[in-house]
Simulated scan of single mutants.
Amino acid sequence: MNIRINLLPHREARRKQKQAAFVALLAAGAVAGAAVVLLVGAWNASRIAVQNQRNLVLKTASAELDKKIGEIRTLKEEIEALKARQQAVEDLQGDRNQSVYLLDELVRQTPEGVVLKSFRQDGRKVTLSGYAQSQERVSELLRNVSGPSPWLEAPNLTEIKATTLDKSKTGRKVVEFQVDVALKRPREQDAAGDGTGAASPKLAKAAPQERD
């Protein structure tokens, strides 16, 4: 007796089960992939938000720093302007006494044999005119002014010639000259006074009293 068993429905059922399991596995993989993508996207979004927040903090700090730098620059400019005004006031105060210092210094630096007939001041430039016994006396005057003089500097001989004095009965020849010199300011003397032996304004002003 032969028994025949039809296994086709059973195989079909197993194949459908496998297909269903495969579809379920694909669905689970898709869900897992979507979850991973969402998690990675959320993490990236959080990192971008954190970086944007840091950038905002840095931008705010940079703006505050630029503002402080601008305030410091403005403050420095105001300080320099105040220094310039203070220096201008000091120069004006010093210039008021320049005539006194100039006359006293000319008496000091003019050697024997030299007579000054006039001088003209134009700002810090002084033009001296006079007579000398010889050219050597004129050279001595130039050396005195360019050397230890605390108030005069940069002598420039602009004219020198032999002439006869108008009231001379003997017709003696003398040397007529014209020299341009520059006046020093008190701050220039202070800058150059250390180690040069140049007299300060107070010493220069007090010198005539000591000489008397």
Rank of each mutant, 00 (worst) to 15 (best):
G193C: 00
L203T: 14
V31G: 05
Q178P: 02
A20S: 11
Q51C: 00
L75K: 14
D95A: 15
G29C: 12
Q109R: 09
A132G: 04
L8C: 12
H10K: 15
L103D: 11
I69V: 14
F177M: 14
A45W: 07
E90C: 07
R96P: 10
V115D: 12
T196G: 02
T158F: 04
Q87A: 12
T163K: 03
Q133A: 12
D95S: 15
S62R: 13
L141C: 00
V23M: 03
A49V: 07
L203A: 15
N44C: 00
S62V: 14
Q189R: 05
S146D: 08
A198M: 03
N97W: 13
A45I: 04
R187T: 06
P201H: 06
A199Q: 09
V36S: 10
Y131G: 01
K125P: 05
G123M: 06
E153L: 10
A34S: 10
A35D: 01
G70C: 10
L92D: 14
S149V: 09
E12G: 10
L203R: 15
K117A: 13
S62P: 03
M1E: 04
D122F: 08
S149E: 03
G41M: 02
L203S: 10
A63P: 08
L38E: 01
E176A: 15
G29N: 10
D166G: 08
Q109Y: 04
A13G: 09
V23G: 01
I48M: 04
G195H: 04
L116Q: 02
